[in-house]
Design a binder for these strands. Sequence first.
RNA 1: GGGCCCGUGGCUCAGGCGGUAGAGCGCACGGCUGAUAACCGUGAGGUCCUGGGUUCGAAUCCCAGCGGGCCCA
Length: 1044
Amino acid sequence: MPLREAEKSYNSHRIEEKVQKFWEDHKIYQKTNKMREDKPKYSFLDGPPYCSGRIHLGTAWNKILKDTYLRYKSMNGFSIRRQAGWDTHGLPIEHKVEGILGLKSKKEIENTIGIDNFVKKCKEFALENKKIMTQQFKSLGVWMDWDNPYVTFDTKYMESCWWTLKRAHEKDLLVKDLRVITWCPRCETALAMAEIDYENKEDPSIYVKFPLMDTENEYILVWTTTPWTLPANMAVTVHPDFEYVYVAVKGEVYLMAEALVDSLFAEDDYEIIRTLKGSQLEGLMYQHPLKDEIPEQKGFEHKIILGEHVTLTDGTGCVHTAPGHGPEDFEIGKKYGLDIFCPVDEAGMFKSEAGKYEGEFVKEADNDIINDLNSKNLLLKRETITHRYGFCWRCKTPIIYLATEQWFLKITEIKDKMLYELENISWVPYWSGDNRFRNWIENARDWTISRQRYWGIPIPIWICEDCKKIDVVGSIDELKQKTVKGTLKGDFIHRPHVDEIFLKCSCGGNMKRTPDVLDVWIDSGVAGWASLHYPQETELFEKWYPYEFITEGHDQTRGWFYSQLGCGMVSFDKSPYKKVLMHGFTLDEDGRKMSKSLGNVVEPEEVIDEHGVDILRFYLLWGNKPWDDLKFNWEEVKNVSKMFNILWNVYVFSTTYMSLDNFDPTRYNENQLKFRKEDRWITSRINSVGKIVSKSLEDLHFHKATRSINKFIIEDLSRWYVRLIRGRTWIEKEDPDKLGAYYTLYNVLKSLITLMAPITPHITEDMYKNLVLGVNKEAPESVHMLEWNVQEDLIHEDLEQDMDVLRDIIEACARARDLARYKLRWPVSEIVVVSEDHNILNSVESLKKIIIEQANTKNLVTSTEFQDLRINALPNMKTLGPKLRGNVPKVAKILESTDGDKIREELKLNGIYKVQIDDLTVELTEEDIVFETELPENVANADFNGGSVYVNTRITDEILSEAMSRELIRRIQDMRKDLDLDVEANIHVYIQCSDHFKDLIHDFKNFISHEVRAKTFDFAEEKADYTKKWKLEDEEILISIKKK
RNA sequence: GGGCCCGUGGCUCAGGCGGUAGAGCGCACGGCUGAUAACCGUGAGGUCCUGGGUUCGAAUCCCAGCGGGCCCA
């Protein structure tokens, strides 16, 4: 079966739809995997996207990076594991469901609809989104196992997760502790560091006077932006090494850091009474400023303590310390044995211990507290400040710090091992691991893993109600065996059912589950083995674990890269992954984050609708380095689109002529065909590109691969090779020279689609079906089943270099002709290429034929210098003027009439040139003469890198004949087009013109006929289908065409 | 305050083992017309963020700073 002529224009949508249907109907993905299942394994783990809505451009980029790399590895003969994953638990989905159901608090969830229904709704919601998102990913052409993904709410998955918790317990890494943590008062739960967003926020900024004990009118000056934490104040911290002063202002005395006095009192008359080192202040007692409002506070002693964390950047150098509301305060409080006073409940309301403020929401109490301080004359100054503050990542409520009991994973104890393990992971780019991730781990604290919520993996810890002993359950079987009260409904281990299971303690007491669920980052952190259901099943685990490769965005430094490493260390003392690509974010055109509130979100669908999937894919891998943030830019997408049009045009060009000639590449072998140097060149080029693409994809430098392909298609293939072979495609008959071009073009296209298949899987599949399957039914069913094939032995670097030189020269010829306003269609009699570099001249000689053809010249000469250049000698007025004065014009005249070359030779030989003016002999030195070169008439010149070209534009009769013939051809072609004739249709041509013109083109009649496919060519008047009058130079000509 | 990344023509970005600054888009001018809702050529346009240092030579390496982004405190 012959090749089919391609559709005239590139219709990405139709192709992509067709190809995706083909993959689906013929199970191409499954077959491709099956085909390679015995090959060496390459395991990959998909970072599970969160199922709370539709995908965005960044998610699309992420999957496209994965897909391209894995398709590449697959073609390179690896058996790939590429199971899709879904992250389904946690607050974001709970929030959306709360919104849908109109619920506003935990109380409403528990009492209005019940935990059971709530959890069911969450699951439904996640499933629905999973379905939508799966469809979206599929439409991007992403090949993953969508039918058997891992899902974090699957019972088996959760069971594996329990096992990891049990491992943590066995290693003594699980601990319940009272600590100050970040807390969302709306969601009433702990938040991990990864769940906090930082944004600007306006807050009060107040300076408060804490009365010193046993004195009158002496105060410690304290600064805070969270007045609501003052009720919990237990101490004031100063830096042991700073200088502190007692400063008298307007009859009162304040204790504060010396360095900050001016920032507060610059405009007042103040007097420094005494200066002390911070360390000397330790133990100094003061009274709580709100002791009357908060009776509970009267029971505590308040002192100055010392801490290194105090800074002088703002405030007073005396830091309000509330161990119940700040991690650092908590740590230092512990060191000094302070009480952890935390009069705030989980919803952010003051409890009864807060006295007067009981029942108020903390942020709303700010004003009352400030007013109370003011009325007691304990407020020095009140301002507002805008600063970075943490917000709950989902509900955007400002976070508070709260001392609560939570479960922790003791990362601080395995941190060193994690850092050690980091050495065994390779990172792209290197700094993402070496610097960024390392820094994150170094600063890691213990991981708060408990959440006081519903939709999540229940923490498998049971606590004895009597002796407080804990038991961590590592599997469902274990749970069933240990259950003494309650039954597991099926294997459903979500809340609330699992809460109804009680175990027996060794002391005889009842064990009840701790009511919390797990931080979702644990969910995804265990994906490596939970997706394989290890340790309950081991077969897949042994085959695929650990993973060769993962890739996610740079936000996952604190997220999945970290949670996986942590969980991996707990479970196996090893990292679950070996190689990481940390990719960037997609931003809008101005480099801002895409967000709904800014209205600058670009949906992947928009791009696909406008241009198509392959163009989106190519663009995303082309726009910049994968690890930099990508500023999405429609203009650039258009650029890519243009490239695809050019590729398609080349494809149309190729298939048009090949199908016309019934070209069947399987019928020939290379010995039967005639290849020219340009054929060997383009073959070399495609393999050079293949080499670069292989290396770049292997290194995950996607941009280098796409850029090299882009350049090849536009410059080498379309702009150059197709141009060079155009003449050959017009030869009719089984000419080995024409077939050599076809054969070369065919194989280049085949190699090209192989190289592009991982990046743009649809267009390449479509072309493959025609180009390869069209002529060979035995070939693999899909381009993606081909082996990656780069033939480095076909690369000829010398030839590629020669061609570069040659293109440069041909461009120079065009430039020279352009300057002389000499049309490219008109031949020239001679072109001289001049260079002092013999390598260049050799290159030209070896590819002479191409230049002759492309520069449209009758003859080509190479030389180290251009003989016909006239050199003129001119007097240098600067030196000769003062010397010769009135004689200068005479010298000039003599120089002008002498051959400049002779003067130059003379100068070279003797160092002087003698001129005779009347009786006077003037000796001219080198500096007295300026040489100027002059082109002979009818020569146009232009420079190229390494030399010059000289184009002889003199028009002879012969030249004119040919030029006129070509002009005529162009007109006839134009008319053919007007008639909308098929490319191969024959015509009859009749010309009416002057005798002179007739004579001019007489010898070219056959040539013209051939070019325009004329069966007959007569100088006669004839009733034709189409007649048109033309003006050629000064001639008026009537051309008539008759269809056959 | 700390860590990381980025800063190259009007725009989007390459280059980045030190050796004459590149591409595409846009703009201007010209050309081509059987790949043609294309295509090609030419030109203008750059303190390679700033300042130091190393060097014969720095966009590139080092230091300091400025601006932007991300992450953290």
